[in-house]
Design a protein around this nucleic acid. Structure first.
Length: 410
RNA sequence: GCCCGGGUGGGGUAGGGGUUAUCCUAUAGGACUGUGGAUCCUUCGACUCGGGUUCGAUUCCCGACCCGGGCCCCA
């Protein structure tokens, strides 16, 4: 009986894995150099962690099950909530700011399509403990830097929920949420109908539509004309200046809502072409979640990037590794293995395990794109030497075994 | 969950109610017994699954599964 992999999951072949690792390492290095430290959280959590954060509505997309102790468990659908849970239980007293990054698989029960899988990987970073725009700017800059390192061109859109929310003062949370959802979807008609339905203030409606339509570099000024002198706008302008200091290109977009209630201020998304309907490679913003998990409230800002989507659009190829094939035969196997093992401290080495003939071993060296063949045959062993063959030039020379390493790593 | 389109060796394909199911590539071995990449030969290997129609289905019909595109959703 042939067993297939479950829907929406993938196998990664050696070539895929190599490329994924390469990009993963680029992202890791970048986060690390920006002073972020990696954390790991469990693959599964109590389901409340996610329902508390996102509401019962997400249950449909969660992989959940009861364990043998009758606990309701969920495979993590994202990593922000686990990170904040970890913060609340372990890091509330840690020196501020707390700068964390993670790279792990997540699970969502959704219809798979391009750039969307049931098991997928997220790379994210969070700054916990700073309410300032500097933290927002840094996180955005880090996200852009990471994408750049991965060889991905992104289109950065930045908004601020605090600004748009000043329009909704007096409306209850559900209504605000509904409006934000429609704004996020860019469903102008639906938004208009809904505002009509709740009999929203005419002035507010006009301002709302004007605000989410604002584009261009002076959108912040326009917003000021529209909304007056509000603190959120000042903060937002500071943020934009900081983004300039980071030399980032961005589009101001007050219509980004990220569909969520817990984002409080800055929100951003990064899009990339070539992904079809799932064109968003990164999303983030500032939020407050700690109180939900029993902690003292704290300002956080962070993002998650969709690693699989990054892989989909990135064209960066990992550099080829230098590798050597040690050619030996039954009579010289002992010497061959010894030499191979010593070379393995320095480069990638294959030794024949197929009992192949001389020419078949060289053919193999070709197929694995070895740069060198180290020939350990009876003639060489008899002289206490080995032959080193450069597979590209075809040139070959006789060497003492202890000279080998020097030649191969030169 | 909904709407399209699609599933033929490991990968890429041709075909089509009765075939020995085509070709390329990859694999293994050989021609070439200590010198690779080329060429040639041989070998291995497939009609996604389940029902239905039919004398006969890989081919037609239905369903499932999976893949792709979109909707929904996207914490």
């Amino acid at each position: 009986m042939k067993i297939n992999k479950p829907r929406g999951t993938r196998d990664f072949l050696p070539e895929d894995t190599r490329k994924r690792r390469y990009i993963e390492n680029k992202l890791r290095q970048t986060a690390k150099r920006w002073g972020y430290n990696e954390i790991k959280t469990p693959t599964f959590e109590h389901i409340e962690l996610f329902t508390l954060k996102s509401g019962e509505g997400i249950l449909g997309e969660i992989y959940n099950f009861k364990d043998k102790g009758d606990r309701e468990i969920a495979l993590r659908p994202e990593l922000t909530a686990p990170v904040i849970r970890l913060y609340v239980s372990e890091l509330q007293r840690a020196p501020r700011p707390i700068k964390l990054y993670y790279f792990d698989n997540c699970f969502r029960y959704e219809r798979p399509q391009k750039g969307r899988f049931r098991e997928f990987w997220q790379f994210g970073a969070e700054i916990i403990g700073s309410p300032r725009p500097e933290a927002d700017a840094e996180v955005i800059a880090l996200a852009c830097r990471m994408l750049h390192e991965a060889g991905v061109d992104g289109d950065l859109h930045v908004g601020h929920l605090g600004i748009i929310r000043t329009l909704f003062k007096g409306l209850d949370t559900d209504t605000q949420g509904q409006i934000m959802r429609l704004v996020d979807k860019k469903d102008d008609k639906g938004l208009e109908d809904y505002l009509e339905e709740i009999d929203a203030d005419i002035g507010m409606r006009e301002k709302l539509f004007e605000l989410i339509g604002l584009t261009g570099s002076n959108a912040a000024d326009e917003a000021k004309r529209l909304l007056g002198d509000i603190e959120e706008l000042e903060t937002f302008r500071t943020l934009l200046e900081l983004l300039d200091s980071h030399s980032l290109d961005y589009t101001i977009n007050f219509g980004i809502a990220r569909g969520l209630d817990y984002y409080t201020g800055m929100v951003f998304e990064i899009y990339s072409s070539g992904l079809g309907a799932q064109n968003q490679v990164c999303g983030g913003g500032s939020y407050r979640l700690a109180h939900l998990f029993g902690g003292k409230e704290v300002e956080s800002t962070g993002f998650a990037l969709g690693f699989d989507r990054v892989m989909e659009v990135c064209t960066t190829e990992p550099p080829a590794d230098d590798r050597a094939v040690v050619v030996c035969f039954d009579e010289t196997r002992k010497e061959g293995i010894r030499i191979a093992d010593s070379l393995r401290e320095h480069i990638i080495v294959d030794v024949d395990v197929m009992g192949r003939s001389f020419s078949a071993q060289l053919k193999f060296a070709n197929t694995v794109r070895a740069r060198w063949a180290v020939i350990v045959g009876e003639d060489e062993v008899a002289q206490g030497k080995v032959a080193l063959k450069d597979m590209e030039s075809g040139k070959q020379e006789l060497l003492d075994p202890d000279e080998l390493v020097k030649r191969l790593t030169a």
